[in-house]
Design a protein around this nucleic acid. Structure first.
Length: 774
RNA sequence: UCGGGGAUCGUCUAAUGGCAGGACCGCAGACUCUGAAUCUGCUCAUCUAGGUUCGAAUCCUAGUCCCCGAACCA
């Protein structure tokens, strides 16, 4: 049973289900088949398929193949393979946007018939020019006012192949001065005489993403269409398309899909854009899409990362809307955690250093039995002879004080075998080429009866029985955390991201079944390369090294920058702004008042009433507010109280909606505030009531009775509640008496909740303090 | 310049007016036939300034910073 992690999307789905907006959950994962999937897609896959699983819904796999010049059937296959490998199965067959081309076309004709779309003959340059920009509205196309009949003829001609690429396009007729540039008559269809990987030459025009995607979702009955943050602006167009099209029965889409956006995965020390990944592959800077250095799913799989680790990673990083850069250490953690559990242990040395054991009988081999994993019963045989290979790094002529490895005169344990001591160093041209030492024959199996402790325990292999193997060590693909932060990412490539070593491995490792993940003791987790490995020449990929708290102890050598903010910096916003800077809200309102006498008068009146400048300023922002507030003032002439409730509470409750659209008028609002001021209802309960009034309207007095919000002045009721609450929280009471003052709020909250907000918070507080003193 | 988003430990993410929590990283210790794993403990955060409230990460006001958007790409 998987534990569902809550995030803003599960909140939305819970609310949708509770409100009955949807009765089931249907999601989709919609890649464009123009590249291989990467770990960022893995996050999205886990999200979409995970949501479907958690809510017993469905998730479709859909190829968003609306641009034939970039897409390829190879990618279609690799995508399916990767999704399955990650452990997910889609509902029904794989879907293709191209399967809906006929329906999309029909919907486009209907759009034309309704006057919502037109064929534009402007060229690319003209269209761009006339779209305007952030500071300038666009201009209508000369072709915008063509008749429906003419548009229909032209559009059909587009389909029939009467035009060459670029001659014309179909555009939605929305608004060329819309502040959202995507809404300035967006393109719906463009002509492309191109061969499509599925529809072949059936079509010579193809729908654009913004038109196609909502229809794909709607046709499939998707309820929650989840995409990444950069599509936030597209949502308005997504909704427009669904609002202006109908299903096959001519009905509005039901369920009506909704788009939600989450932050895509940003991962340190790598690049994630398909374009850049493609560039690495095409320029042969890596060895294909499945190069183990690549963040592609294929690359991670070949390197030896498991689907479980990737899914754990997706869970670990969560889902939110913050722009985030995930520390690659989190992925490494998940990989280690997963491999730690599953990997049998074996020994291999990366850079061998010979150790001759001078007291070991010549030609004799001892066969030791060592468990594959400590504490488990499965074992393997490990030969031990006169010449042993140890790791070059495990010997030091000049060791630091805390050296736990071999040095001259020191004794170490060879894992699972014997204690050995180093007696002398063998040199050639001054360089260490080997060691000579002695073995304690009484320590077979690595134990000694006299309780002697060796300096440390090393991994090793027997020189005469060791197997040659290629060991590929991987490191981060880039040397900086954000290779694509600015300019070219290529110069930041890590030349040492792949290091190939010829190592020596214990013979039993060859018996391990293919696809086994193994921990080479003290070196890391390895995975037999599924492509280049051969029985005669095994190739092992290091998935990830072991956590190392020693080699980089004094000063970190991994180069990870500390992103901690530097100490309290000088305030930047200190000097007064010069007047030439952009207008702020206050100035904007002042200008409005200057040009609207009614607002200016209201402002003056409110100031005279004793309101402070800020409040008066805000209340005279627009005529509707003034009218509302004046009405309230007539019902309850307490300007201060009214302004506080209006500004601090009502403004939040109406969430930007015009005052005319909420179910509460000024007089009722005034009446409401009078009730609070007259102690008929507490502030706490007042907030509940106001929220209800804004949402549903009604008569405040009647509602107080109906909702049971009337103020309780009866102290005995408060005492009873206080006692009940304190009795139910003995632990908290003890902590409070021990000095944890924060808990007073918890108690107040609990009492108020029990009394449904109908008691005065001050009185509750008093009562609690008295009781707690005892 | 306009529109849309976002801001909580170094990192990722919770807390939906009531004890700022978890995880990664880091540090310290215990244990150890892997300087691993395991176990224990510790360090560390609400962008700023005002306001409302008994009580604010959360509501209001003003500001600051960051991201996205002007392909016949998705």
């Amino acid at each position: 049973m998987t534990i569902r992690r809550a995030n803003f999307l599960t909140d939305i789905i819970d609310a949708d289900l509770a409100a009955g907006r949807v009765t089931r959950v249907a999601t989709r994962f919609p890649p464009e088949p123009n590249g291989y999937l990467h770990v960022g897609h893995a996050k999205s896959i886990c999200l979409n398929f995970g949501l479907a699983r958690d809510y017993a819904g469905t998730c479709n796999l859909r190829m968003d193949d609306t641009n034939p010049v970039k897409e390829d059937v190879d990618y279609v296959l690799s995508i399916q393979k990767d999704v399955r490998w990650l452990g997910f199965e889609w509902a029904g067959d794989v879907r293709f946007a191209s399967d809906y081309f006929e329906q999309m076309y029909a919907a486009a004709e209907r759009l034309i018939e309704c006057g919502d779309a037109y064929v534009d003959h402007q060229n690319v340059e003209e269209i761009r020019q006339n779209r305007g920009d952030f500071g300038r509205p666009g201009v209508d196309s000369l072709f915008r006012t063509r008749s429906v009949a003419e548009n229909l003829i032209l559009f059909r001609a587009m389909r029939s192949g009467a035009f060459v690429d670029g001659t014309c396009v179909l555009r939605a007729k929305i608004d060329m001065s819309h502040p959202n540039l995507l809404m300035r008559d967006p393109l719906l269809y463009r002509i492309r005489h191109a061969h499509h990987h599925r529809t072949g030459d059936t079509w010579c025009m193809y729908p654009m993403y913004d038109y196609a995607h909502p229809l794909e979702d709607a046709v499939e009955g998707i309820t929650h269409s989840i995409c990444t943050l950069e599509f936030e602006s597209n949502r308005e167009l997504y909704d427009w398309v669904l609002d202006h099209t109908r299903n096959a029965d001519g009905e509005p889409w039901n369920p009506r899909p909704r788009q939600y956006e989450f932050a895509r995965l940003g991962l340190g020390y790598t690049v994630m854009s398909k374009r850049k990944l493609l560039q690495l592959v095409e320029e042969k800077r890596v060895n294909g899409w499945d190069d183990p250095r690549m963040p592609t799913i294929a690359g991670l799989r070949r390197r030896g990362v498991t689907p479980e680790a990737l899914r754990d990673f997706a869970d670990l990083i969560g889902v939110a809307k913050n722009n985030s850069l995930v520390d690659i250490g989190k992925l490494e953690f998940c990989v280690r955690q997963d491999l730690e559990k599953r990997a049998p242990r074996a020994m291999a040395v990366l850079q061998p250093l010979s150790l001759q054991l001078t007291n070991w009988p010549l030609g004799h081999t001892d066969l030791l039995t060592i468990p594959w994993k400590s504490g488990e019963s499965a074992t393997r045989q490990v030969p031990f002879g006169r010449e042993i290979l140890i790791e070059r790094d495990d010997f030091s002529e000049d060791p630091p004080a805390d050296w736990k490895r071999l040095s001259v005169g020191k004794e170490v344990r060879l894992f699972g075998a014997y204690f050995v001591r180093c007696d002398e160093v063998v040199r050639e041209d001054g360089e260490v080429i080997g060691l000579r030492g002695t073995v304690d024959l009484d320590t077979r199996g690595g134990e000694t009866k006299d309780g002697r402790q060796p300096a440390g325990t090393l991994h090793w292999v027997d020189a005469t029985h060791a197997l040659d193997c290629e060991l590929r060590l991987y490191d981060r693909l880039f040397t900086v955390e954000q290779p694509d932060a600015d300019g070219d990412f290529l110069p930041h490539m890590n030349p040492d991201a792949l290091q190939v070593l010829q190592g020596q491995m214990e013979p039993a490792a060859a018996e391990l079944p293919a696809g086994t993940h193994v921990q080479l003791m003290r070196v890391g987790y390895f995975f037999s390369d599924p492509v280049d490995s051969e029985p005669s020449k095994p190739v092992w990929n290091r998935v990830i090294g072991l956590r190392d708290t020693w080699t980089k102890a004094p000063g970190r050598t991994d180069g990870r920058p500390d992103r901690r903010k530097e100490a309290p910096e000088a305030r930047k916003d200190l000097p007064g702004k010069d007047a030439t800077q952009k207008k702020n809200r206050v100035e904007w309102r002042a200008e409005r008042r200057a040009s609207t006498p009614e607002l200016a008068a209201a402002h003056g009146r409110y100031c005279a009433l004793g309101l402070d400048a800020d409040a008066a300023d805000l209340l005279s922002e627009e005529v509707a507010i003034v009218a509302f507030f004046d009405q309230a003032l007539r019902a309850h002439p307490n300007p201060l109280s009214l302004s506080r409730w209006f500004l601090n509470d009502l403004e939040g409750l109406r969430k930007g909606r015009p005052l005319g659209e909420i179910s509460l008028d000024g007089a009722t609002f005034g009446h409401f505030v009078a009730l609070v001021d007259g102690s008929r209802i507490t502030v706490q309960a007042g907030k509940q009531l106001l929220a209800h009034l804004v949402a549903n309207g009604g008569d405040p007095v009647a509602l107080i009775a109906a909702m049971g919000l009337g103020k309780v002045d009866d102290n005995s009721a408060i005492f009873a509640a206080v006692d009940a609450v304190l009795a139910s929280m003995p632990g908290e009471v003890t902590r409070f008496r021990a000095g944890d003052q924060k808990l007073l709020g918890v108690f107040i909250g609990a009492v108020l909740k029990q009394l449904r907000g109908s008691a005065d918070a001050g009185a509750v507080r008093q009562s609690l303090l008295e009781r707690l003193k005892e």
